[in-house]
């Protein structure tokens, strides 16, 4: 993981148009945008943190909590939607007691909603740390979660 001051050095032009690329690189490196990093970016680009937070929350790509040990991407593309991904997401959120974009308190799981991940044949599909699970249902999703939990234990 690169340190913040290393990352900002890649953007010598301290102008506002560097904001989004800078945030993207920080997220790629640290997995999320921490409060500290937003404050740091604000100081570097001379922008109020409220503006940066405003920009970052406008886009779906940014998250403000660290990724869980198991990062669950729920596909909400068209094919998955037609086959019930809305219910899958709802069940998942209920089961883990978090919303999309958040991380469980024990740090095991985080949920991210993604538009089509290009596996429409497997719909509805979720992807946990790069492993695809095809044709998930409201019931099977709980089994999958439990499996990862025991794997950790």
């Amino acid at each position: 993981m690169k340190a913040l001051n290393e990352i900002v050095k890649n953007y010598p032009g301290k102008t506002r148009d560097n904001l989004i690329p800078l945030l993207q690189e920080i997220q790629n490196n640290q997995g999320y945008l921490s409060k500290e990093s937003i404050v740091e970016v604000g100081k570097y680009l001379n922008l109020p943190t409220s503006k940066i937070f405003g920009v970052a929350t406008f886009y779906n790509q940014f998250r403000f909590q660290p990724l869980g040990k198991f990062h669950i991407q729920v596909c909400r593309g068209t094919a998955c939607h037609v086959l019930g991904s809305a219910t899958v997401l709802q069940e998942l959120e209920k089961h883990l007691h978090i919303k999309a974009g958040q991380t469980t308190r024990d740090g095991f799981f985080s949920i991210e909603v993604v538009a089509c991940i290009g596996a429409c044949g497997l719909a509805p599909v979720i992807c946990v740390n790069g492993n695809f699970h095809a044709g998930v249902t409201a019931t099977s999703i709980k089994e999958i979660i439990e499996k990862y939990k025991t794997q950790e234990a």
Binding site: K35, I38, P48, T49, S50, K51, I52, F53, G54, T57, F58, Y59, F64
Partner: peptide, 19 residues
Amino acid sequence: VSAIDFINRGSRTVIGTSF
């Protein structure tokens, strides 16, 4: 002062402080 700005997008937009 810029204490507040738009947060989120579309129908979920609210006005609020940073974080």
